[in-house]
Simulated assay, not measured.
Amino acid sequence: MTAPIRLAVIGMGKIANDQHLPAIAANPDFDLVATVSRSGEPVGDLPLFPNIDALIASGPVVDAVALCTPPQVRRAIAATALAQGWHVFLEKPPGATLAEVVTLENAAQAAGASLFASWHSRYAHGVEPARAWLAARTIQRVTVTWREDVRVWHPGQEWIWAAGGFGVFDPGINALSIVTRILPRPFFLEDAVLDVPANRQAPIAARLNFRDDAGVPIAADFDWRQEGPQHWDIVVETDQGILRLADGGATLTLPTGETPTQADGLHGEYPGLYARFAEVIRAGTSDVDVAPLRHVADAFLRGKRETVEPFVE
């Protein structure tokens, strides 16, 4: 495929409007042809459909869809799109369960379509230089602090507190997507504590302890109750000093004080995601890494649940 990829965006919430639409508009590989949402306004003169079945029935020519819906409902929509032979971009997390993502990957292969499980934080400017620098060092300890105010970043999003909504792991999985990318060895969960509000199904905070194959400890502190300054930081202690990733991976500081960034010329995480989506479509491949989701699943499997005060927005 060499012509622009005709794309429909499904799920026109905050992330679609704030991140997806600007990235699509700036990428000549894509031509936005329709949007799908149960509510909201059309984008310019483009048609707006209430669901994917209405999109299919209307007959617009579509090559690919970007799914920005909550994860609990995404599998059925993605399966329908793949059955049409459409390429599928999955907003993070790629699904509500590991099994459904594997099922979608198999469906994409059977349909000859591309499936892209996106992890936007991996496209932050400091991530790839951090990965390259750590590859030649001995890692001694990793500390992750991901603390933000849910009222600021996810106002009114009730689905996120329901079963399958991930709770604090919605931002926490961003940290895990970076750590699984920059560390040279796989790691596993040893123990976790999940703070679950008395009136919710999903945790508002989590403390996790991992260890890699060489015995290196990795500690993560995720919290949605942070007021004041927000923290999205990863600190890696090595035999040659401390590497720091701040601002969700956007700012890398090496022990020398250097602050290198990736040299691909992209500005922002979502432009990088759409460049990668176009790449896998044109190559006829898929990009589905479930490592971050696997660690979240392990936290729910092994984590100790502690009931905390109700959360009222």
Score class of each variant (00 low, 15 high):
P229E: 13
V102L: 11
A283N: 12
G95L: 00
E190I: 09
G165S: 08
W146A: 00
Q19H: 15
A163S: 14
A25N: 11
V236E: 05
A76G: 07
I234N: 03
L266K: 07
I77V: 13
P255L: 05
T103V: 11
F277R: 09
W224V: 02
A64L: 06
P28W: 05
L32D: 00
I24M: 05
P260K: 12
L48P: 02
R305L: 02
K304E: 13
F187Y: 13
A220T: 08
Q84H: 05
D212G: 04
T2Q: 14
W146P: 00
F166H: 14
L254E: 11
A79N: 07
I15E: 00
P4E: 08
G13F: 03
I218W: 02
F116E: 11
A163R: 15
P186E: 04
T2C: 02
P271M: 05
F210T: 11
D212N: 05
G172N: 01
A99K: 11
L104N: 04
T35F: 07
A8Q: 05
W86F: 10
V168R: 02
G164R: 06
A299T: 05
P42S: 02
A202I: 02
A275R: 15
L194W: 00
Q201R: 11
I173D: 04
A3R: 15
L252I: 04
L55V: 08
R181T: 15
G165T: 07
A162S: 11
A202P: 10
L266N: 10
H20V: 12
S39L: 00
Q157S: 09
A79S: 15
R244S: 15
F30K: 04
K14A: 14
I242G: 04
A163E: 14
L104D: 07
A57Q: 09
D18Q: 14
P42F: 02
E100M: 10
